[in-house]
Amino acid sequence: MSEAIVRVQDLHKAYGSTEVLSGVSLEVNEGEVLVIIGPSGTGKSTLLRCINLLTRPDQGRVWLDGEEVTAPHADVNHIRERVGMVFQDFNLFNHLTALGNVMVGLTKVKRMPKQEAHELALFELERVGLQDKADLYPAQLSGGQKQRVAIARALGMDPRVMLFDEPTSALDPELIGEVLEVMKKLAREGMTMIVVTHEMGFAREVSNRMIFMEHGVIVEQGPPEQLFYCAEHPRTCEFLGKITELYGPRQREEE
């Protein structure tokens, strides 16, 4: 039994008087794809941001590869190098080309020599299918392309785990597919992933385990089949029922 790559213990976070995380604990093992679903505003994004300490939890501890992220003197910057994050709003660096975006972490943080960084960056862009857009600026790319560059940027750092915060929520419907394809490919290659998403098809197809969160707590956890078909908690059924209504019974038959 390999040690969990990410371990989260009893996280609490409140903004003002609103408690967003009310005691969340979980573990993610190597190669696992964990998908977190739930209504908006229930702390899913906050949870992700607590894992790489972009948000500091009020209470609770987080470990990455056995190293405690939340320790008072932890080298957070160093830890973040091993956690890749993909944001809903892409957050590509607007003043750098696609290639520049992937390179900047390599040259400035990992202190790679420029030539090596250049080659690695091109490799990552190729991995997401955008090597021919390397010299374009973010403003010149479509939403789907921007997000794929963002994925390449995170991959370039050679992360142990990739965190995806609603990666397709800001995309036009026709552009969602290309991003999901890249994510599926990563999963096949064995990347450890934690994904917050509303894309149920992706969840069902790719995840090893799913978590349903509401009101800052984990309501139910388990393999996708469990949550989708014989959920233990009524609220899970209710939430997924409403979602699968959109997809219809057809999808069940596809299985």
Partner: peptide, 20 residues
């Protein structure tokens, strides 16, 4: 978001300010 993305890559604050 720009600062967040830079920090997420592991950039120290000063670097993020200077380069991003």
């Amino acid at each position: 978001g720009q600062m967040m993305a830079a920090r997420a890559l592991g950039m120290p604050r000063l670097q993020a300010i200077a380069f991003i």
